[in-house]
């Protein structure tokens, strides 16, 4: 059997990859995808700990996280469409109207 700490190590690696994606990419849609990647890395920790403790609570929390991720994706993509309609770009460094 694989010990739970291995799953948490994989989760840490995936979370860091997601953080790097948010930091280095210009495309706002790819930034949103990186956020989904981070949410899923945390889900993996919940599932692994839930299995290690024999408790179903972690899986319920993962269900909530999936729901929140759906809401976040819907609202975020709507904001991106609205910004694209006004500025005709999805690059974060060109959406700088609130910068001074």
């Amino acid at each position: 059997m694989t010990p739970p700490s291995w799953f948490m190590a994989l989760s840490a690696v995936l979370f860091a990859i997601g953080v790097a994606g948010v930091l280095i990419r210009r495309n706002v849609i790819v930034m949103l995808m990186s956020i989904e990647l981070m949410l899923n890395a945390v889900n993996l920790t919940f599932i692994a700990i839930s299995r290690a403790l024999g408790s179903v609570d972690g899986q319920v929390i993962v269900l909530f996280v999936i729901t929140v991720a759906a809401a976040e994706a819907a609202a975020g993509l709507a904001i991106i469409i609205s910004a694209f309609r006004n500025r005709e770009t999805v690059y974060a460094d060109e959406l700088n109207v609130m910068r001074w």
Partner: peptide, 15 residues
């Protein structure tokens, strides 16, 4: 994260 993973107590095995 790896430092925390090594230091924090985690379940040793799968129940």
């Amino acid at each position: 994260l790896f430092v925390f993973l090594v230091k924090a107590p985690s379940p040793a095995g799968m129940n």
